[in-house]
Write a protein that binds this DNA or RNA. Structure first.
Length: 157
DNA sequence: ATTAATAGCGGCA
DNA sequence: TGCCGCTATTAAT
């Protein structure tokens, strides 16, 4: 893998940390969740992305579908599942069953949860749009409350 | 190398 | 209501 750098994005919801290299974004950290990063700090190679993130957290629909993600390290099913999740339109939700089917394994809903747990690209891969079909809370790997907050942000508009 | 556990779901009693 | 099996992946034994 290429050498990683990091960058910070200041938003109304706090300071996000992005790990990236020239080929794409490797990982995104919610405010306060980044481990100590001992690589170089440098500006993002994709100038529009910072603005899209700030727009999104202020309730505007983002246009970030085409920014490159570094999916290395994800197993095959996880890759296709995350790609399927990325195609969920802004403001819509899907069940675990639906995204698993979209990823090509209609019976792998349980594995879909495992794959989402491994998601290094929250927001850009909108895992918060995947909810349980029975309406119970469901899970989220980010900080408590963020899933609900992001859904509310999108559904209000 | 094998087994358990997991961000879930629907069927069936 | 409770039990069962199901899939892909990781963690534990």
């Amino acid at each position: 893998m290429k050498a990683l750098s990091f960058s910070e994005i200041e938003t109304v919801r706090g300071r996000f940390m992005l790990l990236f290299h020239d080929g794409g974004i490797y990982e995104i950290f919610f405010p306060g969740t980044a481990p100590p990063l001992h690589c170089e700090r440098r500006p993002l190679p994709w100038p529009g992305l910072e603005r899209e993130l700030q727009r999104y957290l202020k309730g505007q629909q983002p246009a970030w579908d085409d920014y490159p993600l570094d999916m290395s390290g994800y197993p095959p099913f996880t890759r296709s599942l995350l790609s399927a999740v990325r195609r969920i339109p802004y403001g819509e939700t899907r069940s675990y069953r639906e995204v698993a089917a979209e990823a090509g394994s209609p019976r792998a809903w349980r594995a879909a949860g495992q794959a989402l747990k491994a998601n290094r690209h929250p927001l850009l891969v909108p895992c918060h749009r995947v909810i349980r079909s029975d309406g119970r809370p469901g899970g989220f790997s980010g900080p408590p409350g963020w899933k609900e907050m992001l859904l509310h942000l999108e559904l209000v508009n």
